[in-house]
Design a protein around this nucleic acid. Structure first.
Length: 151
DNA sequence: GCCAACGTTGGC
DNA sequence: GCCAACGTTGGC
């Protein structure tokens, strides 16, 4: 079992939205590295840390689980979608995603600030300066520590 | 709202 | 294939 982290601006999609929906396709990722992680690395049942970005106290707010095999991101085919990609075709889809199922909301936010000061999390790419990846793998030891912190 | 980081685009 | 310009992300 592997650990990953996915970022979202709560204004656009929050952990509460996922709690309500139970499962959602993680659409709208338009970065090749992030796509490759979803398409080639993730497996059913893997743990996903849910990170809120773009707010005063960014941090990890809960957990999800990979709930599907990779599949084409439908929004790339939709001309009315913000994520429409005219260069993508049904035959050769450019963008893939996985479904993410809700697991839990943490009783408190694991703030970026806190995580950046934790000696057990040295090397965590989330807290590296300039990191913009919205989907990233998390080292197993770091993942276990994050779950420990959330209790 | 600023700006660092970094991915993408397009001219050459 | 280089690289400048531009756009986006996201913390602060």
């Amino acid at each position: 079992m592997q650990y990953f982290l996915m970022k979202s601006e709560p204004e656009s999609y929050s952990i509460d939205d996922l709690a309500r929906d139970r499962v959602t396709p993680w659409e709208g990722v338009r970065n090749y590295q992030a796509r490759n992680t979803m398409r080639d690395v993730m497996a059913l049942g893997d743990v996903v840390f849910f990170h809120h970005s773009g707010i005063a106290e960014p941090g990890i707010v809960g957990e999800g689980r990979v709930a599907s095999l990779p599949h084409p991101d439908e929004t790339q085919f939709d001309p009315t979608s913000h994520y429409y990609d005219p260069k993508s075709t049904r035959e050769y889809p450019r963008w893939y995603c996985v479904d993410v199922a809700y697991v839990c909301t943490y009783p408190r936010t694991l703030t970026l600030k806190e995580l950046g000061n934790d000696s057990a999390l040295v090397g965590l790419s989330l807290t590296k300066r300039g990191n913009r990846l919205s989907v990233m793998p998390i080292d197993p030891a770091h993942g276990a520590h994050l779950q420990h912190l959330s209790n």
